[in-house]
Simulated assay, not measured.
Amino acid sequence: MTAGAVRERRSTEVPATADAARDHRRREALVTALGYAAMVAVLVTVALPLYWIVMTSFKDRPDIYTLPVTWWPGTFHPENYAEATTSVPFWTFLRNSVIITGVLSAVKFTLGVLSAYGLVFLRFPGKNVVFLGIIAALMVPNQITVISNYALVAEWGWRNSFHGIIVPLAGVAFGTFLMRNHFLSIPTEIIEAARMDGAGHARLLWRVVLPVSGPTMVAFAIITVVTEWNEYLWPFLMADDASVAPLPIGLTQLQNNDGLTDWGPVMAGTVLTMLPILAVFLVLQRHMIKGLTSGAVKG
């Protein structure tokens, strides 16, 4: 090939490469813009109702029902928070929620970790059948079992008691499924090395399996705490009075029955209900990120 032909070929290849690079950059910019637009849309969808709840908690009744809708209180009315905590036994509801959520979360976390460990690291007949039963339990909505559970608990005389609320909710199919899948992802070399060093099941669980499962355990804990804190249907059926009723039940008592609900105290109670679970989430999220980053740098 002559030198002139080579130069001509290079002159045609360079513009084509430059055009391809510009098209690639444009596609990347478009994808980035769409990604940011989607994030903004999700943020607005999530944050707008929260903003409305917080702002409404500081409005008086005329300001709430005014048209057109106002997104900022005309005059701040913090008395809604005092009314929310005094018109109903709010602190009793808060205590009950802490007890129910704390006990249920501890029980579910313990059962989920131990059952998942047994399904992965123990050998026993029918292990696959047990796991299929757990999967089947995940497919059954909790509402289907309400009638049978209610009849059983009522027969045992557990109505209007903490154990009547806690025991039927202590099933842990989701946690077992989540932790089992994570335990299966642990490299077998680590497990075999621990067993060669003479580690039994207790030592293997506490010294090897759990230390490398931090992020998954934190995710399991967050999901469990949020779910139990917001549980409404079963406590509503079991609780006859404020002695064992949690906060979701207490919020319904803030609504008046005169045909016009005073949404200011209701929203104030909602904000106070969100704060503890938000604090727990922020603390656990910090540990989750720490666990993720530490695992990344250790390789």
Rank of each mutant, 00 (worst) to 15 (best):
W156D: 02
W156Y: 14
R159H: 03
R159S: 02
S161W: 12
F162M: 10
H163A: 05
H163N: 07
H163S: 03
G164I: 10
G164F: 08
G164N: 07
I165S: 00
I165E: 02
I165G: 00
I166E: 06
V167L: 10
V167Q: 07
V167E: 02
P168H: 04
L169Q: 13
L169H: 01
A170M: 12
A170L: 07
G171R: 14
A173H: 09
G175E: 13
T176K: 06
T176G: 05
L178Y: 14
L178V: 11
L178M: 14
H182L: 10
H182Q: 09
H182I: 13
F183Y: 09
F183E: 04
F183W: 03
S185I: 10
S185L: 10
S185D: 11
S185F: 09
I186F: 08
P187E: 06
T188G: 05
T188F: 00
E189T: 13
E192C: 04
E192N: 07
E192V: 05
A193D: 05
A194S: 09
A194P: 02
A194Q: 05
A194W: 00
R195F: 00
R195H: 00
M196R: 06
M196L: 12
D197L: 09
G198N: 03
A199V: 02
A199S: 10
G200L: 01
A202I: 15
R203D: 09
R203Q: 13
R207I: 03
R207E: 13
V208P: 02
V208W: 02
V208E: 14
V209F: 03
V209S: 00
L210M: 15
L210Y: 03
V212H: 15
V212A: 15
S213M: 00
G214K: 08
P215L: 15
P215N: 15
T216E: 12
M217Y: 01
M217H: 02
M217Q: 10
V218K: 14
V218S: 13
V218E: 12
V218N: 11
A219C: 15
F220P: 03
F220I: 13
A221N: 09
I223L: 15
I223P: 02
V226I: 15
V226M: 15
T227A: 15
T227Y: 07
T227F: 05
T227L: 03
E228G: 01
N230V: 08
E231V: 05
Y232E: 11
F236Y: 07
F236S: 04
L237Q: 06
L237T: 04
M238K: 00
M238S: 01
A239Q: 07
A239N: 04
D240R: 13
D240C: 02
D241A: 12
D241F: 10
A242T: 08
S243D: 07
V244W: 10
A245T: 08
A245N: 06
A245F: 08
P246V: 08
P246T: 07
L247H: 05
L247P: 05
L247V: 14
P248A: 11
P248Y: 11
I249H: 01
G250D: 07
